[in-house]
Each structure stands twice: as C-alpha cells, then as structure tokens.
C-alpha cells in the first residue's frame, strides 16, 4: 500500500511538471511583447529593453521556465501587470471562493448521481430507468450557460427563491455565500449528475450480474442487505475514479458558471486576466487549476486504493 501511495504521488508530480511546461510554453506565445504591454505603447526602446532584461525575457526558454517554476513553488508569484497588486493573496482568495463553489457542486451531484444511478440499475429497462437515463443524457453535455438560462428564469424570476446574480463580496464567509452558490452549483452539477448516474448504473448492473450477488441472495439475505453489503460496496468503487475523471469537466463548468453568475472565483479572475493580458496572473491561475485537478486525481487514486482490498491488502 505504501509503495502504491508513493508511486501515485510520484507520478502526479511528474505529470504536474510536464503540465506546467505546457502551460508556460503556451502562455509565452502571447501576442505582443510583455514588456511592451507593461510599459504601454509610448515607451522608449531603451525602457523596453531594460524591462526585458529585468523580466529575464532574453534568457533561453528553459531558464525562464525554471525561474518561473521555482518562484511558483516558493509562492513568489509576482505582481499583477494590471493593478500591480501581489498575485498570491489575490489568487488564494479566489481559490477559496471557487473551492466553496466546488464543495456545493460535489455535495449536489455525487449523492444525487449515485442515487439515480443505483435506482436506474435496480429498475433496469423499466420506466424509472428510462426516465433517469434519458434525462441524464439531456443534461450531460448541455453547456452550463444554456442550463443556467433554464434555471435562472425558473428559480429567480418565477419562484423568486434564489438570487440570479452571485457577484458577492470576495471575502464573504461560506454561510453568507451559500444562497449565492446554490444556483451556479446546480448549473455545474447538472452536467455531472448524468455522467455519474450513467456510470454508476453501468457499474451496478455489472455487479448485480455477478455470481457473488446471486450467492448473497441465495444465502437468504434480505434485499437491502444484499444491496448495501454486497452490491454497493463493489459497484461504487469505480465511482471514485469517475468523479475524479469528471473533475476536469467540472472545473470548466465552474469557470463558465462563475462568468454567468458573476461569482468572484478563480475562473472569473482568469477570464479577467486574459481580457487584460495579465500574463503572470494567467499563469498563476492556470497552474492553480492544474494543481487542483491533479490533487483531485491523487485523492481519488488514494481513496480507490484504500477502498479496494486488492490494492490495500497484498
């Protein structure tokens, strides 16, 4: 098990290393000269050259990358080019907000997805199954901004339960922010519920077909005991991986949802940075997103290893 953990952690680090190279390389293709951007259109050639020297822009690519990577690890993320504010606290505060949103999203779609998936599997090919699979298929790839447009008129305008705009103060506590989080979270979760439900359904059906479930019924165990002790324990194991696999999609969905609802999270900060061509901020936001995705995968891997006796017990 320890070897497994170390291997997973090691491979996540390697993946993050290469991913950071990709992020850094892509952002270096930014149109225009960074120094020019910083100093504005009317800067002298000399000033630009000085700033290029100062930013290390004349160094070879790998030196620039290493400088950037080392500073990133140290937490020295520099200042925003636009408002000259230090990036680290800015990104961290937004990350906190995005994390709050992510928690609500997960709390909505993981239980609901599992519940619907198991229900569909148990009522396979009957009406509940067909309804669940059809509805989940409808929402699985519906862009977040489209589903928001279904939700906002209903919940905000018709029922008047929830605010349509989530542009709260960036330092709000979770309790304060919660009412503003629900609608964007639902919009993001709609994509994932269907996916998780579908995968859970498939997994559960596979397990229901196994000999050991038949054996469990023939032991005389009541249905609910077979379901909870024998079926779900095995059927939900892959769900951990499925949720992790969905994390990339979820981060994308949250980004769009933050823009739609004006929620002050990492995604909106990234879009803002892009609109203002704020290179260090773009890089920082992107790396934080990548780190989060990698962490999610790591957690899922470890959880899977922990839950699966084949890995836990050699």
């Amino acid at each position: 098990m320890i070897a497994y953990i170390l291997r997973r952690i090691g491979s996540i680090f390697v993946i993050m290393f290469f991913a950071s190279i990709i992020i850094f390389a892509i952002t270096q293709f930014l149109p225009g000269d960074v120094a020019q951007l910083v100093l504005g259109q009317f800067a002298t050639e000399e000033a630009i050259a000085n700033l290029r020297e100062e930013f290390g822009l004349n160094n070879p690519f790998y030196v620039q990358y290493l400088d950037w990577a080392v500073n990133f690890i140290k937490g020295d993320w520099g200042n925003s080019l636009v408002n000259r504010m230090p990036i680290f606290p800015m990104v961290m505060s937004r990350l906190r907000n995005s994390a709050m949103l992510a928690v609500v999203v997960l709390m909505i779609y993981v239980p609901l997805g599992i519940l619907l998936g198991v229900l569909a599997a148990l009522k396979r090919d009957k009406l509940p199954d067909q309804m669940i699979t059809t509805v989940s298929m409808v929402f699985v790839a519906l862009p977040v901004f489209v589903s928001s447009l279904l939700l906002i008129p209903f919940f905000c305008h018709y029922l008047g339960w929830l605010p349509a705009n989530s542009s709260i103060h960036p330092d709000s506590t979770f309790g304060e922010a919660l009412p503003y989080l629900i609608l964007p979270a639902i919009a993001v979760a709609l994509n994932s519920i269907g996916y998780v439900a579908r995968m859970t359904r498939a997994g559960t059906i596979d397990v229901l077909r196994t000999d050991y479930v038949r054996a469990a019924y023939l032991k005389g165990l009541p249905r609910w005991q077979v379901l909870f002790r024998h079926v779900l324990r095995n059927a939900l194991l892959p769900t951990v991986t499925i949720v992790a696999m969905d994390a990339g999609m979820m981060i994308g969905g949250m980004l769009v949802a933050e823009v739609v609802f004006g929620y002050p999270g990492l995604g909106r900060l990234l879009l803002y940075a892009m609109q203002n061509q704020d290179l260090p901020l773009i890089q920082a936001c992107s790396m934080v997103a990548v780190t989060m995705l990698c962490l999610a995968n790591l957690v899922a891997d470890l959880l899977y290893g922990f839950l699966n006796p084949r890995i836990r017990v050699k």
């Binding site: 050991y212 038949r214 023939l218 324990r233 095995n234």
Partner: peptide, 20 residues
C-alpha cells in the same frame, strides 16, 4: 435460501465477494 437450501457455484473466484 441459505438455511434449508444452499448452493455451490461453478467459479469459486466469482462466487465470493471480492471486498469482504
């Protein structure tokens, strides 16, 4: 089931629950 009739199936590896 289980008290008056029990069954033994063909593939023992499939007939026991892998996570118990």
């Amino acid at each position: 089931w289980g008290s008056r009739i029990t069954m033994v199936h063909q593939d023992p590896a499939a007939a026991v629950n892998p996570s118990i």
